[in-house]
């Protein structure tokens, strides 16, 4: 059954969209990630204009993360103070991203830019996760343990604030910058940015793991909300029809995924996720190299 996506301007099979939502939702439930970094490239490969894929996926992530955020708030797993600081950068970053996309659209370069951004981010995150997961699987066999806390350069920065929930006394500059970068990334690539934000919060800011996911969801909810409004206002690229159809599949998929997760260990999960991420990056590289069917871009 075909459904016409009004903003994307193309008809698509409704079951393909539901299936896509279901599978990405399943993976995101299983791996505890938003799934935007998988969904957006798949939408682009399906033939949806990249700018529309990015903006609609931001809208979809807003819905998916909001329910996640509620669950974490109920369990008191959110550091609101840290979330607020991250958001200062995040909202600004989201606005910057939307305007970068507007410029790219006006010169017809958005497809290239979005694809290259994906290849760059997916390959680096994928490789890093792959190496990290393999080495920790090996360490497990040898019985070695990681050091708990390390002191790095950022602990010398000014504007220090106490974050009770995270048991931290650190400068606000790193969270603001991390928020800003993730905000830009989020609105240009149509991702929540959890796959960058979560490691950054653990390894750079040094937050305890139990508040990381909830706090990152807080940032993701607000940043994608701002992205949704700005993408709609500035570029008219949010397709509500697309995002809501994806959501239906994703919600169900996520519930199934969450139940499967328990059977795998943390390292195994990270290893499989890394493989999937690298696979998507590989397909995108192919998109850039393979001679296009249509040698012209009509706008």
């Amino acid at each position: 059954m075909e459904v016409y996506l009004p903003i994307a301007g193309i008809p698509v099979d409704i079951f393909i969209l539901l299936f896509l939502g279901l599978s990405v939702g399943f993976l995101s439930g299983m791996f505890g990630v938003g799934g935007g970094f998988l969904m957006t490239p798949l939408l682009i490969l399906m033939g949806i204009p990249p700018a529309v894929a990015v903006a609609s996926e931001a809208n979809h992530i807003l819905a998916a993360s909001f329910s996640g955020l509620l669950a974490h708030i109920r369990r008191f797993n959110v550091d609101f103070k840290m979330g607020l600081i991250l958001l200062l950068g995040g909202i600004l970053g989201s606005a910057i991203g939307v305007f970068i996309l507007k410029e790219l659209l006006s010169i017809g370069q958005e497809r290239f830019f979005i694809t290259v951004s994906y290849i760059f981010v997916l390959t680096s995150v994928g490789l890093w996760m792959l190496i990290e997961s393999i080495s920790s699987i090996q360490k497990k066999y040898k019985g070695k343990r990681k050091r708990l806390h390390e002191h790095i350069w950022m602990h010398g920065l000014p504007l220090k604030v106490r974050f009770r929930k995270s048991h931290l006394y650190i400068s606000v500059i790193p969270p603001i910058i991390i928020g800003l970068l993730v905000g830009i990334l989020s609105s240009i690539m149509g991702v929540g940015g959890g796959f960058v934000l979560v490691p950054a919060m653990i390894y750079i800011i040094g937050m305890p793991t139990q508040v990381v996911v909830g706090t990152s969801l807080l940032q993701i909810v607000f940043v994608t909300a701002v992205s949704t409004v700005l993408h709609s206002y500035v570029n008219q690229t949010v397709d509500v029809m697309l995002s809501s159809l994806l959501l239906v599949g994703a919600v169900i998929g996520a519930q199934i995924g969450t139940r499967v997760m328990v059977r795998l260990s943390g390292e195994q999960i990270r290893f499989f996720l890394a493989v999937i991420i690298l696979l998507v990056a590989f397909v995108l590289i192919g998109e850039l190299i393979v001679t296009p069917k249509d040698m012209y871009y009509v706008g």
Partner: peptide, 18 residues
Amino acid sequence: MYGFFAAFAAIIAGLLAS
């Protein structure tokens, strides 16, 4: 307005789902 509608609808949908 469409942007606010899209954001609001997503939040409601997320709430319903949860």
